[in-house]
């Protein structure tokens, strides 16, 4: 009867929705459900879900954004305002390997500049750029909590610490 589920369209989304909505495998959907189950309020799962969409689609592309809005019953602007606040959420494509060199003081003191420099030379891109083949992105980021093992960079989520120029080069070379 009137208890039947009625869907209160998040405002003006019909027009605002980007073309196409991302869809995911049952496994991923299950993973997403597990996250949603943690919170009394759906919206709380927005960051975990953004990471999943990024993992699956490379970045938060329009279909991914549309998916999140629909899955979390939010407005498209809600996704946007959150996505743009957090530096780890990408609304633009990033390379398969995202090299993030820590540039904050402790690493700086121990020569993070050189690390950035060698990465830039090796990959042939400037900080903030993505290589033409889409394999690499290079960023300088703020303190990643390995000041005691500085200098360091993160390749996607992996920490590489106590770097030297040579070590950095090896790591870049060793990436499949």
């Amino acid at each position: 009867m009137s208890q039947q589920p009625i869907n209160i369209q998040p405002l003006s989304q019909p027009v605002q929705m980007p073309e196409g909505i991302a869809s995911f495998s049952p496994e991923i959907e299950a993973e997403i459900d597990r996250h949603l189950a943690k919170y009394p309020v759906m919206r709380s799962a927005i960051l975990p879900l953004m990471f999943i969409v990024q993992r699956e689609r490379g970045y938060l592309d329009p279909p991914g954004v549309a998916y999140l809005a629909q899955r979390l019953k939010l407005r498209i602007t809600d996704i946007w305002e959150v996505a743009t606040f957090y530096s780890m959420i990408n609304l633009k494509p990033v390379g398969k390997y995202h090299i993030q060199v820590c540039k904050t003081l402790s690493c700086k003191l121990l020569g993070s500049d050189k690390i950035t420099q060698v990465c830039a030379e090796k990959l042939g891109i400037k900080v903030g750029e993505m290589s033409a083949d889409g394999r690499f992105s290079l960023s300088e980021v703020e303190c990643l909590g390995s000041c005691g093992t500085a200098p360091m960079f993160q390749v996607n989520f992996d920490y590489h610490e106590n770097l030297t120029v040579e070590k950095a080069e090896q790591i870049l070379d060793s990436l499949p």
Binding site: L47, Y86, S87, M88, C143
Partner: peptide, 10 residues
Amino acid sequence: IYTHTGAGAY
């Protein structure tokens, strides 16, 4: 107890 992730914001 659940874990929750931030996304890069001091």
